[in-house]
């Protein structure tokens, strides 16, 4: 019994391995949620709205002409800001 069990236990993915993988994923996810509570992501919509207001003082643009995007690259977080200006003849000033 013991002999065969020992070898049999080696090829199907062991339940402990499955447990570890599942935990690594859920724990990483929950940590991110916890740390996100008072930083980065939740200020993005407000930032976008305020930027839109500032730009509109000078140029008439639609909501979708401003894009704010936060990307993670290794240890860095990159805040990407994209403003699409309309054709020169449509400008208000």
């Amino acid at each position: 019994m013991g002999f065969f069990n020992y070898f049999r236990a080696t090829y199907p993915p062991k339940t402990a391995t499955v447990a570890k993988e599942r935990l690594q994923i859920i724990v990483a996810h929950e940590r991110k949620q916890r740390s996100g509570q008072n930083s980065t992501l939740d200020y993005l919509p407000l930032l976008q709205k305020e930027l839109l207001e500032v730009v509109r003082k000078y140029v008439a643009i639609a909501d979708e002409h401003i894009k704010v995007n936060l990307e993670k690259e290794g240890d860095y977080e990159i805040l990407e800001l994209n403003i699409t200006l309309p054709d020169p003849d449509n400008r208000s000033t």
Binding site: T15, A19, K20
Partner: peptide, 17 residues
């Protein structure tokens, strides 16, 4: 049970936490 692969090892738990 760790040896038979159906319990998380001390090292596994330590790595996760």
């Amino acid at each position: 049970r760790v040896n038979t692969g159906d319990m998380l090892s001390a090292q596994d738990v330590q790595e996760i936490l």
